[in-house]
């Protein structure tokens, strides 16, 4: 662990100023990801700017019915918020399915979005990894790829994004509010995380020094009928092999009036399943339609040595989730 400076920012303006122009500086929120990386020797910031008190830790109503979540809101508090549980149940479930109680008490909304991949080679500084050390190669390509991507990967990186929370937020078209040296900007969550392409070292479209201040959940009626399904190796405290966030709105004739689907565990970013959604809109809610939707989305999948199972798993998880959400209330 390299020696580093530590500074506690009083407000977001001060935090942004502290990072401006210092490439070696990083924000510290809950620290559950960054501090691990420092101990493992894969991050060695020379200055840590602690934003855990500078960030807003409130959840507020937005005019028009949405919610504004401060980037400092802890995962546990967000999951427990009654408004989130009623109006965006998939989000509450996604949060509760993540990590452990202790970690959720510490982890923040901003930090959760920006947590880095759990690719084991990324976490081991003695192995080649393009994300950690651009140009060094990708150890996963010849290695253990059970957790890795089947969609949108490149020959430079096949890592997946580990967040559960972000998957649910993506299904709801959340908006990420960011403060940088040049002022405020808003980023659709779909545009926050990126595919690896030939710049795998960049997880997101944020510039150095940009600080996430809030996440806005739009007013979205369909979100009330949503759920999150996480498939994992043990019953708790495991990252997703595959996960699905879905919301449905059925018309009176039981066809899909609207549907939102996002996958976790399949790609370098939370994966919005627009092809599956298109397939379903206007169609009757039948098993065959669910399968066709899964197929539409996963036809492009390119499995690696150890993760071909993710195609069947993602497909089945989606079908099961849609089945559950479209079942008449009484039968559920």
């Amino acid at each position: 662990m390299k020696p580093f400076e530590y500074e506690r920012a009083a407000d977001t303006g001060g935090a942004v100023a502290a990072l401006a122009g210092r490439r070696g500086a990083a924000y510290l929120a809950g620290g559950t990801n960054l501090v691990d990386h420092m101990k493992l020797g894969i991050a060695s910031p020379e200055l840590l700017v602690d934003v855990s008190r500078a960030l807003d830790a409130r959840i507020e109503e937005l005019p028009g019915g949405g919610l504004r979540i401060g980037a400092g809101v802890r995962n546990a508090d967000l999951a427990a918020d009654m408004r989130v549980r009623k109006r965006y149940p998939a989000l509450a479930r996604a949060l509760l399915s993540g990590a452990s109680g202790q970690l959720r008490n510490l982890a923040t909304t901003g930090g959760n979005l920006l947590q880095r991949t759990r690719c084991p080679y990324f976490q081991d500084p003695t192995t080649p990894c393009n994300k950690r050390e651009p140009g060094s190669g990708c150890s996963a390509l010849d290695g253990h790829t059970r957790q890795h991507a089947i969609l949108g990967a490149s020959q430079h990186c096949v890592a997946t994004h580990p967040s559960d929370m972000a998957v649910a937020m993506l299904a709801f078209d959340a908006v990420v509010r960011v403060r940088g040296a040049g002022g405020l900007r808003e980023i659709a969550i779909a545009d926050l995380h990126r595919l690896p392409g030939d710049v795998p070292q960049r997880d997101t479209t944020l510039e150095h020094g940009e600080l996430i201040t809030d996440v806005d959940l739009p007013s979205l009626e369909i979100a009330a009928r949503s759920t999150y399904r996480k498939v994992r190796d043990r019953a708790s405290y495991a990252f997703a092999l595959v996960s699905v966030a879905a919301a449905v709105e059925l018309a009176s004739d039981d066809t899909f009036a609207d549907v939102r689907i996002a996958f976790g565990g399949l790609a370098h970013k939370p994966w919005r399943a627009t092809l599956a959604e298109d397939e379903l809109r206007g169609r009757p809610a039948t098993e065959a339609a669910f399968r066709a939707a899964a197929h539409a989305e996963l036809a492009a999948a390119q499995p690696l040595r150890d993760n071909a199972f993710k195609i069947a798993m993602a497909s089945n998880a989606l079908v099961a989730t849609l089945r559950e959400l479209t079942m008449p209330r009484a039968a559920r």
């Binding site: 759990r118 084991p120 080679y121 976490q123 081991d124 003695t126 192995t127 150890s139 290695g143 253990h144 190796d233 043990r234 019953a235 708790s236 405290y237 495991a238 990252f239």
Partner: peptide, 18 residues
């Protein structure tokens, strides 16, 4: 690599309470 890939308790799963 001749390397152990599962080198933490998030990667080496032991049954959890649940």
């Amino acid at each position: 690599l001749g390397a152990i890939v599962t080198t933490d308790l998030a990667g080496y799963h032991i049954a959890a309470n649940a």
